[in-house]
Nucleic acid binder design. Structure first.
Length: 570
RNA sequence: GCUCUCGUAGUUCAACGGAUAGAAUGCCUCCCUCCGAAGGAGGUGAUGCAGGUUCAAUUCCUGCCGAGAGCACCA
């Protein structure tokens, strides 16, 4: 379908020449409202502005010109049904049933390859996201980062890039000392190890804030952790880190992420500190005993890179990380996905990096997503009011189970399906929003199983599978060759998939794909409700089955790009 | 105080400067003898305020009001 756009554009350009009109910038787009055709262009409106003539008249002239030579010579005519001129001067293009037949054959032939692009071909891209800290909970904020990061990774890969996934984790620092201190004080109960560490962190944090003597004790712990000078602390540290990391892996498996690289602050800190020290005078300067970068001259603010205790801050660590990443995997582009709370700080950091290593800074792109907020305000593991990813998943799963209590599933089938539906519901609620915006997270309200939702998409897919299975049982063939006179919204939408995927990738906006898939599913549900698809006596049945098969391919591809599972039954 | 986001139906979200501002949910009607009702059809209802640029503004610019985030040794 992308070629059609190019042909239309070329035809219009050549028509303009024939009409002695100036060339101009104009857009060709798919109207959201399908009654406005398959393509629409504002070329006449743009020209009306330039030539000070009536856009309607210009549109008529272009339409007349297009009806004769140019499109004919480009062999588009069999695919172009008609061109309409509509006030205030739009040109709307409608494609023929033959076009949809050919597009559907292509979808069926290409299967899950349909929609792959070449805009990122042979680019090496490292994408960092999720970034949970060992010794702390994996909460719904991490879930958000992971969901968005995984979808973007898959989108970028779909356009031909080689994508490496990276996860950066804070395995040293005060939060670790607090957790270890808390763990020593905590009376162990029968809870799972990972939950014990969560409690330990909250205990340590509170004690740190409320008690001066304890604070000193925890600071000492922190020093010992850095130096690895205390055997019992080391043992606890090593055990706790392993518990955390193993636990995170179980979540990544459920969410469909497989990281290629893991980076830790314990390594980036050392490296970053060295980098800062090498660039004193040129980039950094001493101020109040700390090593800072004065951002003011670049319209930014000043940030501390090495503190007065001679320890690297997050800024220095991140600087080191950029270098470490490139050493491990020489990328063309490095994308870092984080919450938007660190946006300003990242601008400072990138400026500092630019002064040290312009090449690396140029390859680095910082994308931010909004924050997941509770109705009660900010979530904080310090206070202990965090919602963990696992508890959310469990909660949603229990709602799903209630819904299907009546259905006939074996226990194993049911567990896998319930998990898939729960993951879909949660991911959809995150991905449907434009990136960068906050989500007020209200359990039970934001995660929906009906209407605009993950399960809605899965359900449409499952229905399509049931139809195809039935046709198979009745021995009816799939064949797009005999289309009916009227083309439905479903077919009109199918061919837009590659363009939507390309645009969602270019703008790093998975929500565009979510919106498209939702509309596609709605079109299929209407299609399904208004006619019988499998009908042995009907000559159009093979065509309708082809439409159904094409739909099912696209829904599966689309959901897979979003890292949302597609159960065959539900 | 300064900087950056963001104000759209009761609620949660869309809208690449364009056409009648789309969905979902809620509430009100209908639709299972028919491939799965987690569904379909219809109704209800919105661009914070005031200016400006444009043939055309939710979108761009200015001011005001309101919400959130960041602003030196946490990450």
């Amino acid at each position: 379908m992308i070629e059609i756009e190019k042909i239309i554009r070329d035809s219009i350009t050549s028509a303009l020449g024939g009409l002695n009109l100036p060339t101009t910038d104009f857009t060709i787009e798919h109207p959201d409202d399908l009654t406005r055709g398959d393509y629409a262009t504002n070329v006449a409106l743009m020209l009306g502005k330039e030539t000070k003539k009536n856009p309607m008249e210009i549109a008529e002239k272009i339409a007349d010109k297009l009806k004769v030579a140019p499109l004919e010579s480009l062999k588009v005519r069999p695919w172009l049904e008609r061109v309409e001129v509509v006030a205030p001067g739009f040109l709307n293009f409608f494609l023929t049933p033959e076009f949809f037949t050919s597009e559907m054959s292509l979808i069926i032939a290409q299967g899950d390859k349909y929609g792959e692009g070449i805009t990122e071909r042979s680019k090496r891209v490292m994408i960092e996201y999720t970034d949970p800290n060992p010794f702390k909970e994996f909460h719904i904020g991490h879930l958000m980062s992971n969901t968005i990061g995984e979808a973007i990774s898959r989108l970028v890969a779909s356009q031909g890039a080689e994508v490496k996934r990276a996860c950066y984790q804070g395995d040293v620092g005060l939060h670790v000392a607090k957790a270890i201190w808390g763990r020593l004080k905590l009376k162990t109960q029968n809870a799972k190890e990972i939950e014990e560490w969560g409690k330990a962190y909250t205990l340590g944090s509170k004690a740190y804030e409320n008690d001066e003597a304890t604070r000193q004790e925890i600071v000492d712990f922190n020093k010992k952790i850095y130096e690895r000078s205390d055997k019992s602390i080391n043992d606890l540290y090593d055990a706790g880190k392993k518990v955390s990391l193993d636990y995170f892996e179980t979540i990544y498996r459920r969410l469909g992420t497989k990281f290629d690289f893991y980076f830790f602050e314990s390594e980036s800190g050392q490296f970053g500190k060295k980098l800062v020290e090498e660039n004193v005078v040129k980039v950094f300067e001493k101020s109040d005993g700390a090593m800072v970068f004065k951002g003011e001259k670049y319209n930014l603010h000043t940030r501390v890179f090495i503190n007065a205790d001679d320890l690297p801050t997050y800024e220095a660590k991140e600087l080191g990380l950029a270098k470490i990443k490139y050493d491990r995997y020489p990328y063309d582009q490095s994308i870092v996905i984080t919450g938007n709370e660190v946006k300003d700080y990242f601008r400072v950091l990138l400026k500092a990096l630019e002064l040290i290593s312009p090449a690396l800074a140029e390859k680095t792109l910082h994308l931010t997503h909004g924050m997941l907020r509770l109705p009660t305000g900010k979530m904080s593991s310090r206070v202990g009011n965090v919602v963990t990813a696992e508890s959310l998943l469990d909660e949603v799963k229990s709602v799903v189970k209630l819904k299907i209590a009546e259905r006939d599933f074996t226990l194993g089938e049911q567990e896998a399906m319930v998990e898939a539906v729960a993951v879909a519901a949660i991911k959809y609620s995150i991905l449907k929003q434009a990136p960068g915006r906050n989500i007020i997270f209200d359990l039970g309200r934001s995660v929906s199983l009906e209407g605009d939702s993950g399960p809605y998409l899965q359900y449409a897919y499952v229905r399509a599978q049931a139809v195809l299975a039935k046709a198979n049982a009745e021995n009816i063939q799939v064949d797009p060759e005999i289309p009916p006179a009227e083309i439905s919204d479903l077919e009109r939408r199918l061919g837009r998939f590659p363009e939507v995927v390309a645009r969602a990738t270019r703008l790093y906006a998975p929500n565009l794909l979510v919106t498209y898939l939702t509309e596609l599913a709605a079109s299929f549900n209407t299609y399904y409700a208004t006619q019988k698809i499998v009908d042995a006596g009907d000559p159009h049945a093979p065509y309708r089955l082809a439409t159904t098969l094409a739909f099912s391919h696209l829904m599966k591809s689309g959901l897979t790009l979003l890292a949302i599972p597609t159960p065959e039954r539900m």
